[in-house]
Design a protein around this nucleic acid. Sequence first.
DNA 1: TTCCCTGCAAACGGTTTGCACCCCA
DNA 2: TGGGGTGCAAACCGTTTGCAGGGAA
Lengths: 158, 158
Amino acid sequence: MQSATIPDPTAIRQRLSDAGLKPTQQRLMIYAAALGMHGHFDAEAVYMGLQADAPSLSRGTVYRTLEAFVEAGLLKQVSTHESHMLFDASLHPHHHLFCETTGEIIDFEDPELSTLIQNYLASKGIDGFEVDDFQLNIFGRRKGMAATAGQAAPHPTV
Amino acid sequence: MQSATIPDPTAIRQRLSDAGLKPTQQRLMIYAAALGMHGHFDAEAVYMGLQADAPSLSRGTVYRTLEAFVEAGLLKQVSTHESHMLFDASLHPHHHLFCETTGEIIDFEDPELSTLIQNYLASKGIDGFEVDDFQLNIFGRRKGMAATAGQAAPHPTV
DNA sequence: TTCCCTGCAAACGGTTTGCACCCCA
DNA sequence: TGGGGTGCAAACCGTTTGCAGGGAA
């Protein structure tokens, strides 16, 4: 669901420029790598993933670049309980299921729910606060993998 | 809103026992300290807060104990973007506003919204997943402190 | 006595930083 | 050429862990 289409190099370059980021070699590579990740990923995964193609790319650059991407709105961060940062290349509204048994984080897309919350916040507003975005974290346990093609099935990730 | 009432020592002792935790000196102190914290706090804050009363209390014990408390359901963890763990002594359903300007995390209590989401999840269910709990993170910016005593006012915290 | 808990201190691992060099606009 | 970006490596800092001593039932 995320990482759906990896844009061609020109488009990537364009996106970086649009975001106000100088399209350097490293940024192009890191952005492409991020889009190619399935689900959530951390800085280390990006670093390791690029080791083969760019052995001289430094870990520090990866951290700095991911941070810049988040700030520019090219990536999102996943909010977790862990002391470890997770990124998400998927920008469209979705939520996360946290399986307390396995620790895995599963993407959960439910436009109806998103809209519900969205509308609620829009109509009631929050006094003294301007809302940009929101993220619903749902905690629980994965059940026996029934996979009955129900209406609201999670999308297994990471 | 949280830390509302700090139970007396006997009650604290009782809660620990109920949670299946041996009520040791250290646990009693740490639990009391946690309940006394306003809003969100990290392990370091607890450690520092107890330094005066219990100089021999070790940092490791604080970490282990807070973890045990979370596991026992005596505390919650706040899910954040940061690589740093935050705890919350408030167990009743509430959400968090993340101010992207100041970085502060503000408690946001809105029973109507909680119920709305609650009911939605209960009625639709999530295929293959059993929901225990949820937490809504709202990102945005604090506005000019108007404080017009609106219906849905955030509760400033940490 | 037994088992769990704690203190201590070292190790860990993810993240940040200072600095000199490099590169793109 | 100027100013931001990068590589490198060390420093940071929150967190975890192994182990020996301690405490409550």
